[in-house]
Design a protein around this nucleic acid. Structure first.
Lengths: 292, 292
DNA sequence: TCATATCTCTGACTTTAGTCAGAGATCGCC
DNA sequence: GGCGATCTCTGACTAAAGTCAGAGATATGA
């Protein structure tokens, strides 16, 4: 049975047996759509715009749903002070209760499902769903080329540098954010960010360092997202960008402390070479790969 | 993070990202309900009764959905010759095409999801979803006491005997089906069958053999369902039934060829004892457990 | 400051989904 | 051959979900 079949089979069992959220949205005296919306607003509130995108609703329809929840005293809709065309939604005290009720129902439903399983089986299910969740999320991550000083790029890089600082024995002091940023911009290079639900979860850049060589730098995958092939996918994408820049070879440097990265480069077809530059004081391992 | 949280988190990723079936039912020019129904009828056709139960639809509503599909020339509804109150549904040639289109869409959707993953990640996802599927199905299996000569019991026992016949070196010749069946009926005993989607997937019986001892017999779990704790769950249920019969002790016999069963009895708190009977020529291992 | 774009809201719809009571045909059983 | 049970269908509904065009308020950039 192929993986496609497994997915489809799983999908069938799943939708038939667990409507963990969906079903717990029923029987609250409110239609499904309204409950779903209430849940999506969540305890911290949300912007109308955001809700429309997340739930993919018609703007007129959403307005009416919100009006209904507001009439019931569950939410308050008010203009965003920063841009008064926009509106933001917040739960009232009553709304917080209704939210908690939905949350409880969904939790009870999940508990009910687990109830017949032994501790051992629960642990297995936990692990299997955790793995599936990670892989499904990773598979639906969106990779795109962004400007190296854009918000998405800088938030990703900030996390990257913070991690290097934690992991390198002597810490890590990054260059000022926009130093050399031009090199990661067309036509000299490219910077790629991977986002999931609007959050940056991986990044990396490539820049041409001579006629036919692209250097890959600043590659990072958020720790919660490791082990799902995201690094390899990002690397492939950066190699594609290097090819587009006319490079026949990719090089990169790293530090052996980052053992999982070194292993990944090996799997991706990179082989170790002599240092090709002294520019990076933190580098102690250098790799190259021919781009076919 | 607890398993409940994992389920809920997974559910969120899942419903957001994969509507493998659901979404592929949209955009066919037919409402979701009609597509779902068409898919449920399937290439081999189905009984109206069955459809109503599987999809949990109001009979009036279902009649109308079927009438619509019939008007579109996708299905034919005709009386069941065996019982002319019932009706059966079959796809026409046009309906077969529409079915295939739904099937293709769902397959393409699943393929699209897998596309960004490497072979290695796909294999992991496959395994994770397979495990989750098994455990979720097992958790939602329905255990119930049935008459030992009912259809559910006899189909289960037939499979059980067939398996013994395959696995015992000298084969296995069962007693005639209803021989001793009375013993597995109240007030002397009980027979439990586990069903999933109406199919028997496990069974077992208990009967009182003296004042305070219940003997557990004919325990079987379908091979596709092993490794999901179903055996342990069935055993617990049979012990409950034994307690209800007033037993303070459970005994059982088995054959060492059935190694996984022997291991499971050990985990469930059974300890090996001397033979308590010579009745079963196939038995070479005997166990007991105090029922607290 | 004026044209243009963005965001939300309103009005006027249609379609889908679902419910309920009861009619009519057919079966199994005494 | 009559009675109750079973199965499907019809009529008459309601509620929910979704669509579309355009109005009105507010921001933005030339």
């Amino acid at each position: 049975m192929s993986t496609v079949d497994t997915i489809r089979r799983f999908n069938r069992s799943y939708t038939q047996r667990i409507g963990v959220l969906e079903e717990s949205f029923l029987g609250t005296g409110r239609p499904l759509g309204a409950s779903r919306l209430l849940f999506e607003v969540g305890p911290d509130g949300a912007a109308v715009r955001e809700l429309r995108e997340r739930l993919d609703l018609d703007s007129g329809y959403l307005t009416r749903l919100l009006a209904r929840l507001a009439d019931d005293g569950l939410i308050e809709v008010r203009p965003d002070p920063a841009d008064r065309r926009r509106r933001t939604v917040a739960l009232t005290a009553v709304g917080q209760n209704a939210y908690r009720e939905l949350d409880d129902r969904s939790e009870r439903k999940a508990r009910g499902l687990l109830e017949p399983l032994t501790e051992r089986q629960r642990a297995r299910l936990d692990e299997a769903l955790g793995t599936a969740d990670l892989l499904i999320r990773a598979a639906t991550v969106h990779l795109r080329v962004v400007d190296p000083v854009s918000g998405a790029a800088t938030t990703a890089l900030r996390e990257y540098y913070a991690e290097l600082d934690r992991r390198f024995p002597g810490g890590f002091v990054p260059d000022p954010p926009d130093r050399g940023a031009d090199r990661f911009r067309a036509p000299e290079g490219a910077f790629v960010v991977a986002t999931s639900d609007g959050v940056s979860v991986a990044c990396g850049g490539v820049r041409r360092i001579d006629e036919s060589t692209g250097e890959i730098k600043r590659m990072w995958v958020a720790s919660a997202w490791r082990g799902a092939g995201l690094g390899a996918r990002l690397l492939r994408r950066l190699e594609d960008e290097a090819r587009r820049l006319g490079c026949a070879r990719a090089v990169l440097d790293t530090n052996r402390v980052l053992a999982e990265a070194v292993a990944m480069y090996g799997r991706a077809g990179y082989r170790e070479i002599e240092p090709y530059s002294q520019d990076n004081p933190y580098a102690d391992a250098f790799f190259e790969k021919a781009l076919g």
